[in-house]
Write a protein that binds this DNA or RNA. Sequence first.
DNA 1: AATGAATGAGCCTTCATTCAT
DNA 2: CATGAATGAAGGCTCATTCAT
Lengths: 197, 197, 197, 197
Amino acid sequence: MPRNLVRDQQLREERRKQILDAAAHVFATRGLLTKISDIAAGAGLSHGHVYNYFKSKEEILLAVIERGQLRYGKILRAAEEVEGNAADKFRYLARRSLPSASSADIYLVLLQALFTDLLEEEDKRVIRGRAKANLGILLALIEEGQQDGTVMQGNPIQLATLFGTLIQNLMLMEMRGYAPATEETIELLIRMLGPCP
Amino acid sequence: MPRNLVRDQQLREERRKQILDAAAHVFATRGLLTKISDIAAGAGLSHGHVYNYFKSKEEILLAVIERGQLRYGKILRAAEEVEGNAADKFRYLARRSLPSASSADIYLVLLQALFTDLLEEEDKRVIRGRAKANLGILLALIEEGQQDGTVMQGNPIQLATLFGTLIQNLMLMEMRGYAPATEETIELLIRMLGPCP
Amino acid sequence: MPRNLVRDQQLREERRKQILDAAAHVFATRGLLTKISDIAAGAGLSHGHVYNYFKSKEEILLAVIERGQLRYGKILRAAEEVEGNAADKFRYLARRSLPSASSADIYLVLLQALFTDLLEEEDKRVIRGRAKANLGILLALIEEGQQDGTVMQGNPIQLATLFGTLIQNLMLMEMRGYAPATEETIELLIRMLGPCP
Amino acid sequence: MPRNLVRDQQLREERRKQILDAAAHVFATRGLLTKISDIAAGAGLSHGHVYNYFKSKEEILLAVIERGQLRYGKILRAAEEVEGNAADKFRYLARRSLPSASSADIYLVLLQALFTDLLEEEDKRVIRGRAKANLGILLALIEEGQQDGTVMQGNPIQLATLFGTLIQNLMLMEMRGYAPATEETIELLIRMLGPCP
DNA sequence: AATGAATGAGCCTTCATTCAT
DNA sequence: CATGAATGAAGGCTCATTCAT
């Protein structure tokens, strides 16, 4: 039966993913007040069963955040590979951060999680570490843009930080009573980053 | 009536303010998971006493948000009055939004509150309404800047939204693992907004 | 100043009466869930001040019950003195127990109080003792009626109990969704008690 | 679905009944001051679990009252079916209302509930409606008795009200310091209702 | 005396987590 | 594996009681 074990493992992994998907959605929708039973309902299973895959709500939250950060990192690396100049890469990045892209909606949860004492300080440290790693990629893109003349001069870290803030907030605009972000918004953003020739 | 009614009223008002200050701080620090007893402790009184000033936790949250939005509006109007061109006004605005300025730290609470069903839909509507009013002031500033040549051309609403997002996030940068905002950040921000002559 | 002391004592007694009146009304209206502040409001003073006259809510409740029972006893003794036969005395008794007569509305409070552990067992014993004393008077009336031929034969204690139950419930009829008691009801009651010649 | 759904449903129903039984007892014993934890303890489960069956204390109270009223209605209808004349039916009715019959002990709770603002006015309306329906049955019995000569003449509604009051108070007699009701009491009651030939 | 600010015990209710089936 | 019954810790809120003014 080793075959079954492999298959079991796959099923198990699928389930975990299912739960995390639901959790990401619910966390992003209701914040940290999210209940285990909401997650379970979203994943289509009983709340008790969730504990066969994660040992606590905290673990789920951590997993959701980790996945969100890793995905964001993946998008960042994908942006690096985009054909064209740095502006094109930022354009790609911003587009992937629009509300329709599910990958971004975890960002607010992360923000909240860094507050509360729901998470251990150690966990927060890890999360900040990943954030810094992601910022590093953004930083490289900024510097590339300053080289190829599509990004203004200035402290790259500051620029990366500002740009990072912006794209992660794109999806939240509507929620905050502002107009939702569109392609037009993205073009403006690119121009804002741009140099004055 | 052996009491001094006028004085009592003043004390009462002070207490309310005291509670709101504590609440703002704790909400900003621990998010919606904030306990009434945390607020009470922060204000230096017993949890039961809080209910002599506010009739529920929800009411406190609403008051905190309202006050935060009104203060932000006040800052916006103060910025309008600043001597100089639009860039100077934005500079002023950004400076007042740095972490050291306590008035801004409510913004994240607001963001969280718009999620959850902790608040009635009606309350959320009111909050979004005030946000829109504030955006209107920012909008006027943007248009002024486009007139006096210190702000780039482009859809003013979009620009206002982007800028609003940025300044409200200044204080959160550090928290999110990025470098904290400084005067240098502000200058970059002003240049980003600026036109290409 | 002994005159002042006397006067003070009178005022104090008046105040106590005021509070008990309010308490009786509120207890009869809202049951044991009655709050001290309701009583205070009813008596037109601050809740804190009540404690200058009674040392606890329990003491007030006991006083209200005692007064109610004593008044009922007084009514019973007044009935004994009524001119005419026993039927006339019962008629008088029933009339004084109609809803309009405030003396009866405490009966339900008493009923509730005998339940809960809000009262010490010792207090309950005292209350039951007074109830028994009152029943004794009723018993005498019943026996008088059996003598003068206006009350049916049968165990006088049973009859007294049944009649006591009835008149104390007269005021509650309306509350329980039944038709309110009237003079007609009273006449029926007298006839029910009456013998078959 | 490894569970036996039908069985689960049965168990669930049993549990509900268990809780209601406990609640009826405790409410009848301690009045509206009854704590959820008392009910839970009475039913042999944890307080939290009670909320898996009822969503609030108020709902439990309402259910207890409803059940009590329905049971009383059932007894009334059973009395209607008793062989014999109306007196026999009343006898049956009174017997079923003695303290030993658990079905009646809810009446006092009902009485208390009609006070307080613990219940919505709407709920009280419903309760009064059911009381009126039950009174209707009693009314029919009275009229039957007036026909077959076992009940005195007079306004049937008044008679029904008086009789209803009496039988519902039978169980409370002892509690109020009076002699407890017995078969002898019941016979007296029947005679009181009877006509004078 | 008189007020109402202040406290904290206590109850209702929710929900993470465990566990029997 | 799956379910949901069951528990109990924790937090919101009320209100009796005390006390400074």
